[in-house]
């Protein structure tokens, strides 16, 4: 099983949309995929019509029960082949109740190992702040996707994220591969274009070669409780995620950049 985490310490950058779109595309491609909602706000959970206030089994179970059975907490969501570990608002209290108990950062990794034979992919939707749940995601993943909105202030938050990643990579004693996904990109605005340029100049091959455009139909899909890639496969947003997935799967995610351009940054 490959585990991808979607995280950024800044909210509203398209994390949930990224998780939903990639999950639905993978499932459509015949890969059994597990979506894991690690955000106590439960946007991913709510996306599929589940109530984060409810107390059914989900991610919280894994942390609350010493011997939780990870095989028993998934709920199926559309399309076929996609499953969800739900978030609950009770997760917001985990930090307070469990504090920083040694080893608690490995709960998710161990739970995913229990279901490794059931899914080809797991996609983790992370909370926007560094804490127990985010550390669990970073400890469990093979690849981290960092959606970054191409706007003026995006780079600031990214530097903070970068420091966090370095430290987690050191503590988990394994390198952490990550890729920046430019999101909510509006190529008609100068600010958007400049931000994208700055992003590519600063992070080079860490930045995915494409962009996820602003597309009002994402909101429409969210209201319908379905992935846009399901609702409108040919929408611009859908095609962008399909391209992202293809690049992630083939490893051709960054555009080769002429050295001169790098140097001029």
């Amino acid at each position: 099983m490959r585990v991808w985490a979607v995280a950024n310490q800044k909210g509203g950058v398209g994390k949930t949309t990224t998780a939903v779109s990639l999950g639905a595309l993978l499932a459509r491609a015949g890969c059994r995929t597990l979506l894991v909602d690690l955000d106590p706000h439960g946007s991913l959970t709510a996306y599929f019509g589940h109530d984060p206030e409810a107390t059914g089994p989900g991610v919280h179970t894994l942390f609350a029960e010493e011997m939780a059975d990870a095989r028993a907490i998934a709920v199926p969501v559309a399309p076929e082949g996609l499953a969800l570990w739900r978030a609950s608002t009770a997760m917001a209290t985990l930090e307070r109740r469990l504090g920083a108990r040694p080893g608690m950062g490995l709960v998710l990794r161990r739970a995913l190992a229990q279901v490794a034979d059931r899914y080809e992919y797991a996609i983790l939707d992370c909370p926007p702040m560094l804490g127990l749940l985010m550390v669990n995601a970073l400890a469990a993943c093979d690849l981290l996707l960092v959606p970054v909105q191409t706007e003026h202030l995006a780079l600031k938050g990214l530097e903070r994220m970068e420091r966090t990643l370095e430290m987690v990579a050191r503590s988990r004693r394994a390198p952490l591969d990550w890729v920046i996904v430019p999101t909510l990109h509006d190529r008609r605005t100068r600010a958007g274009v400049q931000a994208l340029e700055r992003l590519r100049a600063r992070y080079g091959t860490r930045v995915w070669q494409g962009v996820i455009p602003v597309d009002t139909r994402f909101r429409e899909a969210s209201r319908a409780g379905r992935a846009l890639t399901e609702l409108a496969p040919s929408a611009r947003g859908s095609r962008a995620y399909a391209a992202l997935l293809e690049d992630l799967l083939t490893g051709a995610r960054a555009r080769p950049r002429p050295p001169a351009l790098e140097a001029s940054a």
């Binding site: 919280h60 942390f63 609350a64 029960e65 010493e66 009770a90 109740r97 469990l98 920083a100 108990r101 040694p102 080893g103 608690m104 950062g105 490995l106 709960v107 127990l132 550390v135 669990n136 400890a139 430290m167 987690v168 050191r170 503590s171 988990r172 004693r173």
Partner: peptide
Amino acid sequence: YLDDLLDERAPREAMPAP
């Protein structure tokens, strides 16, 4: 904090019942 959380040798302690 990170080193503690990611300590492989730490036994899983009993959680308070939710």
